[in-house]
């Protein structure tokens, strides 16, 4: 088993865990963590690609994803905080009544 396949497998497993978490968790914090997991799975793949191809494009893209993830976490946590303030129990399906 080459190291590339190992990284690929890790990335796939991370993505699956993240997707499962995002689907089944109801707590917004946990969902955000799952999303981060998925993003990092993608990051791993990007870095692997950069390594295989021998240039730094993939690494640059991975850096952009990191920044994006930070921005997304800020907004997500802001929404989660607003939810926490508004109600006692935090469940992302509970504020479904705000749909249009």
């Amino acid at each position: 088993m080459t190291s590339e396949v190992l990284v690929l497998a890790t990335s796939a497993v991370l993505l699956a865990i993240g997707a499962t978490g995002a689907l089944i968790r109801r707590n917004p914090i946990a969902m955000l963590m799952s999303v981060e997991l998925m993003l990092n799975a993608a990051n791993l793949l990007l870095v692997l690609g950069a390594r295989v191809r021998g240039n730094v494009d993939g690494q640059a893209a991975a850096l952009i994803v990191l920044v994006l993830a930070a921005a997304e976490a800020v907004i997500g946590l802001g929404v989660a905080l607003a939810l926490f303030r508004d109600r006692d129990r935090v469940d992302v399906d509970e504020p479904a009544e705000v749909h249009g």
């Binding site: 997707a19 995002a22 689907l23 089944i24 109801r26 969902m31 992302v92 399906d93 504020p95 479904a96 009544e97 705000v98 749909h99 249009g100």
Partner: peptide, 16 residues
């Protein structure tokens, strides 16, 4: 409009 249920997990499921 019914597709817009407001349930986040359903949206994610459809996306996935």
């Amino acid at each position: 409009a019914r597709f817009q249920s407001g349930h986040l997990s359903r949206y994610i499921l459809v996306s996935v």
